[in-house]
Amino acid sequence: MATLELLNPVAHAGLRLRLTPRFSTHFAQIVASEFLQAMQDHPILFTKHPETGAFYAGALLALEPGDALSDNAGVEPYRPADLVRQGFFLAEGNLAIDPDAPVFTPDGTPLFEANGEPSDALRGVQRATHILHHGLPETDAIIARFLALRLIEPIDIALNFDDGSRLRLDGLYSISLDALHALSDRDALDLFRRGDLQLAYAQTASIQHIRRMAKQRNDRLSAAPA
Protein backbone atom coordinates (compact mmCIF):
# COMPACT_ATOMS: atom_id res chain seq x y z
CA MET A 1 0.00 0.00 0.00
CA ALA A 2 1.45 3.36 -1.04
CA THR A 3 2.19 5.92 1.65
CA LEU A 4 0.57 9.16 0.56
CA GLU A 5 1.80 12.66 1.36
CA LEU A 6 -0.33 15.78 1.12
CA LEU A 7 1.10 17.94 -1.64
CA ASN A 8 2.92 20.94 -0.21
CA PRO A 9 4.74 23.69 -2.17
CA VAL A 10 7.47 23.86 0.48
CA ALA A 11 8.07 20.18 1.19
CA HIS A 12 7.73 19.27 -2.49
CA ALA A 13 9.32 22.35 -4.07
CA GLY A 14 11.90 20.21 -5.87
CA LEU A 15 9.54 17.48 -7.03
CA ARG A 16 9.44 16.97 -10.77
CA LEU A 17 6.90 15.20 -12.95
CA ARG A 18 7.80 13.15 -15.98
CA LEU A 19 5.70 14.23 -18.94
CA THR A 20 5.83 11.52 -21.57
CA PRO A 21 3.87 11.16 -24.83
CA ARG A 22 3.64 7.41 -24.21
CA PHE A 23 0.78 5.86 -22.31
CA SER A 24 1.38 3.55 -19.37
CA THR A 25 -1.42 1.13 -20.26
CA HIS A 26 -3.31 -0.06 -23.31
CA PHE A 27 -6.76 0.54 -21.73
CA ALA A 28 -7.58 3.50 -19.49
CA GLN A 29 -10.74 4.30 -17.60
CA ILE A 30 -12.56 7.44 -18.73
CA VAL A 31 -15.62 9.32 -17.53
CA ALA A 32 -18.61 10.59 -19.47
CA SER A 33 -17.30 14.16 -19.85
CA GLU A 34 -14.29 12.75 -21.74
CA PHE A 35 -16.25 10.78 -24.34
CA LEU A 36 -16.46 13.50 -26.99
CA GLN A 37 -12.73 14.21 -26.81
CA ALA A 38 -11.60 10.60 -26.47
CA MET A 39 -13.72 9.44 -29.41
CA GLN A 40 -11.60 11.53 -31.77
CA ASP A 41 -8.58 9.27 -31.18
CA HIS A 42 -9.57 6.09 -29.37
CA PRO A 43 -12.22 3.37 -29.36
CA ILE A 44 -14.42 3.73 -26.28
CA LEU A 45 -15.63 0.46 -24.80
CA PHE A 46 -17.05 -0.91 -21.58
CA THR A 47 -15.54 -3.64 -19.45
CA LYS A 48 -15.92 -5.01 -15.92
CA HIS A 49 -13.79 -4.42 -12.86
CA PRO A 50 -12.11 -7.78 -12.15
CA GLU A 51 -12.73 -7.43 -8.40
CA THR A 52 -16.31 -6.14 -8.32
CA GLY A 53 -17.77 -7.07 -11.71
CA ALA A 54 -19.08 -3.52 -12.09
CA PHE A 55 -19.02 -1.98 -15.55
CA TYR A 56 -16.83 1.00 -16.36
CA ALA A 57 -15.94 2.86 -19.54
CA GLY A 58 -12.45 3.00 -20.99
CA ALA A 59 -10.44 4.18 -23.95
CA LEU A 60 -8.56 1.51 -25.88
CA LEU A 61 -5.11 3.04 -26.39
CA ALA A 62 -3.47 0.03 -28.04
CA LEU A 63 -4.70 -3.36 -29.19
CA GLU A 64 -2.87 -5.27 -26.46
CA PRO A 65 -0.38 -4.65 -23.64
CA GLY A 66 3.03 -3.79 -25.03
CA ASP A 67 1.66 -3.10 -28.50
CA ALA A 68 2.72 0.10 -30.24
CA LEU A 69 0.33 2.94 -29.61
CA SER A 70 -2.15 4.13 -32.18
CA ASP A 71 -1.08 7.22 -34.07
CA ASN A 72 -3.37 9.82 -35.56
CA ALA A 73 -1.43 11.60 -38.31
CA GLY A 74 1.38 12.49 -35.92
CA VAL A 75 -0.92 14.44 -33.57
CA GLU A 76 -0.61 13.54 -29.90
CA PRO A 77 -3.81 11.63 -29.05
CA TYR A 78 -6.15 12.50 -26.21
CA ARG A 79 -4.72 11.54 -22.83
CA PRO A 80 -7.39 10.31 -20.39
CA ALA A 81 -7.58 12.14 -17.08
CA ASP A 82 -6.88 8.90 -15.21
CA LEU A 83 -3.43 8.80 -16.83
CA VAL A 84 -2.74 12.52 -16.37
CA ARG A 85 -3.24 12.19 -12.62
CA GLN A 86 -1.01 9.10 -12.20
CA GLY A 87 0.86 9.38 -8.88
CA PHE A 88 -1.71 11.83 -7.48
CA PHE A 89 -4.72 11.11 -5.28
CA LEU A 90 -7.45 12.94 -3.41
CA ALA A 91 -7.24 12.66 0.37
CA GLU A 92 -10.16 14.30 2.16
CA GLY A 93 -10.50 16.84 -0.62
CA ASN A 94 -6.79 17.64 -0.79
CA LEU A 95 -4.28 16.61 -3.43
CA ALA A 96 -1.85 13.97 -2.23
CA ILE A 97 1.01 12.15 -3.91
CA ASP A 98 2.70 8.79 -3.80
CA PRO A 99 6.32 10.02 -3.72
CA ASP A 100 7.55 6.63 -4.92
CA ALA A 101 5.42 6.67 -8.08
CA PRO A 102 7.52 6.31 -11.25
CA VAL A 103 6.06 9.53 -12.70
CA PHE A 104 8.33 11.54 -10.38
CA THR A 105 11.85 11.82 -11.78
CA PRO A 106 14.80 14.18 -11.18
CA ASP A 107 14.81 15.34 -14.81
CA GLY A 108 11.08 15.99 -15.06
CA THR A 109 8.96 19.13 -15.14
CA PRO A 110 8.70 21.06 -11.82
CA LEU A 111 5.38 20.86 -10.01
CA PHE A 112 5.78 24.37 -8.60
CA GLU A 113 7.05 27.65 -9.94
CA ALA A 114 9.78 29.53 -8.09
CA ASN A 115 7.11 31.57 -6.27
CA GLY A 116 5.35 28.41 -5.04
CA GLU A 117 2.48 28.63 -7.49
CA PRO A 118 1.43 25.45 -9.33
CA SER A 119 3.16 24.90 -12.66
CA ASP A 120 1.21 24.22 -15.84
CA ALA A 121 1.93 20.51 -15.36
CA LEU A 122 0.43 20.54 -11.87
CA ARG A 123 -2.57 22.54 -13.05
CA GLY A 124 -3.18 19.81 -15.61
CA VAL A 125 -3.13 17.22 -12.83
CA GLN A 126 -5.54 19.34 -10.78
CA ARG A 127 -7.95 19.52 -13.73
CA ALA A 128 -7.70 15.78 -14.29
CA THR A 129 -8.36 15.04 -10.63
CA HIS A 130 -11.39 17.33 -10.70
CA ILE A 131 -12.72 15.58 -13.83
CA LEU A 132 -12.45 12.18 -12.17
CA HIS A 133 -13.81 13.25 -8.78
CA HIS A 134 -17.02 14.56 -10.32
CA GLY A 135 -17.15 12.28 -13.33
CA LEU A 136 -16.88 8.83 -11.79
CA PRO A 137 -20.23 8.84 -9.92
CA GLU A 138 -21.91 10.56 -12.88
CA THR A 139 -20.60 7.92 -15.27
CA ASP A 140 -21.64 5.09 -12.96
CA ALA A 141 -25.19 6.48 -13.03
CA ILE A 142 -25.18 6.72 -16.83
CA ILE A 143 -23.95 3.14 -17.21
CA ALA A 144 -26.64 2.01 -14.75
CA ARG A 145 -29.28 3.60 -16.99
CA PHE A 146 -27.80 1.89 -20.06
CA LEU A 147 -27.88 -1.44 -18.24
CA ALA A 148 -31.44 -0.92 -17.05
CA LEU A 149 -32.48 -0.47 -20.68
CA ARG A 150 -30.38 -3.50 -21.74
CA LEU A 151 -28.32 -1.40 -24.13
CA ILE A 152 -24.89 -2.83 -23.28
CA GLU A 153 -23.87 -6.05 -25.00
CA PRO A 154 -20.61 -8.00 -25.54
CA ILE A 155 -18.68 -7.02 -28.65
CA ASP A 156 -16.81 -9.61 -30.70
CA ILE A 157 -13.44 -8.27 -31.86
CA ALA A 158 -11.37 -10.83 -33.76
CA LEU A 159 -8.53 -9.50 -35.90
CA ASN A 160 -6.52 -11.38 -38.54
CA PHE A 161 -3.22 -10.10 -39.85
CA ASP A 162 -1.29 -10.72 -43.06
CA ASP A 163 1.49 -12.60 -41.25
CA GLY A 164 -1.02 -15.21 -40.12
CA SER A 165 -1.32 -13.98 -36.55
CA ARG A 166 -4.66 -13.43 -34.89
CA LEU A 167 -5.79 -11.27 -32.00
CA ARG A 168 -8.99 -11.43 -29.99
CA LEU A 169 -10.07 -8.68 -27.63
CA ASP A 170 -12.18 -10.33 -24.96
CA GLY A 171 -14.21 -8.96 -22.07
CA LEU A 172 -15.31 -5.81 -23.89
CA TYR A 173 -18.81 -4.41 -24.35
CA SER A 174 -20.53 -1.79 -26.48
CA ILE A 175 -23.88 -0.07 -26.84
CA SER A 176 -26.18 -2.10 -29.09
CA LEU A 177 -27.52 0.16 -31.81
CA ASP A 178 -30.33 -2.33 -32.46
CA ALA A 179 -31.41 -2.11 -28.82
CA LEU A 180 -30.99 1.66 -28.85
CA HIS A 181 -33.16 2.08 -31.93
CA ALA A 182 -35.80 -0.26 -30.49
CA LEU A 183 -36.32 1.91 -27.39
CA SER A 184 -39.72 3.37 -26.75
CA ASP A 185 -40.17 7.06 -27.53
CA ARG A 186 -40.38 7.74 -23.80
CA ASP A 187 -37.07 6.03 -22.99
CA ALA A 188 -35.32 7.55 -26.01
CA LEU A 189 -36.52 11.03 -25.07
CA ASP A 190 -35.35 10.51 -21.49
CA LEU A 191 -31.87 9.52 -22.72
CA PHE A 192 -31.82 12.55 -25.01
CA ARG A 193 -32.78 15.00 -22.27
CA ARG A 194 -30.15 13.58 -19.91
CA GLY A 195 -27.45 13.80 -22.57
CA ASP A 196 -26.99 10.02 -22.51
CA LEU A 197 -28.07 9.57 -26.12
CA GLN A 198 -25.17 11.67 -27.39
CA LEU A 199 -22.76 9.59 -25.30
CA ALA A 200 -24.22 6.35 -26.64
CA TYR A 201 -23.71 7.44 -30.24
CA ALA A 202 -20.23 8.77 -29.46
CA GLN A 203 -19.25 5.42 -28.02
CA THR A 204 -20.52 3.40 -30.96
CA ALA A 205 -18.96 5.79 -33.50
CA SER A 206 -15.57 5.53 -31.79
CA ILE A 207 -15.35 1.80 -32.53
CA GLN A 208 -14.24 2.67 -36.08
CA HIS A 209 -10.76 3.39 -34.67
CA ILE A 210 -10.21 -0.34 -34.13
CA ARG A 211 -9.99 -0.82 -37.90
CA ARG A 212 -7.37 1.94 -38.14
CA MET A 213 -5.37 0.50 -35.24
CA ALA A 214 -5.49 -2.96 -36.81
CA LYS A 215 -4.25 -1.59 -40.14
CA GLN A 216 -1.37 0.19 -38.40
CA ARG A 217 -0.44 -3.00 -36.58
CA ASN A 218 -0.66 -5.00 -39.79
CA ASP A 219 1.61 -2.48 -41.57
CA ARG A 220 4.18 -2.75 -38.77
CA LEU A 221 4.11 -6.54 -38.94
CA SER A 222 4.51 -6.48 -42.71
CA ALA A 223 7.44 -4.08 -42.47
CA ALA A 224 9.26 -6.08 -39.78
CA PRO A 225 12.31 -8.03 -41.02
CA ALA A 226 11.68 -11.73 -41.51
Rank of each mutant, 00 (worst) to 15 (best):
F104I: 02
D140N: 09
L111E: 10
D120W: 10
E117T: 08
P99G: 02
P99Y: 00
G124K: 09
A114Y: 01
A101F: 10
A121R: 01
F104T: 05
A121S: 04
T109Q: 13
D120T: 14
T105F: 00
P110N: 06
D140W: 00
I131R: 10
T105A: 11
P110Y: 02
P137G: 01
I143W: 01
T105K: 12
S119K: 06
F112K: 07
D107F: 11
A141F: 07
L136N: 10
P102A: 15
I131T: 14
L132P: 00
D98P: 02
E138D: 11
P118R: 08
D120K: 15
P110I: 08
G108H: 03
F112I: 09
H133P: 01
A128M: 10
G108Q: 01
T139F: 03
P137E: 08
G116P: 15
R127L: 14
I143H: 00
V125K: 06
T139L: 05
L136H: 13
L122T: 06
P106C: 06
T139M: 02
D140Q: 10
R145I: 12
E138C: 08
D100V: 12
F146R: 00
A121K: 04
H130S: 04
L136M: 01
V125P: 03
L132G: 04
E117W: 03
T109F: 03
H130I: 00
E117K: 12
P118A: 07
T105Q: 14
I131D: 10
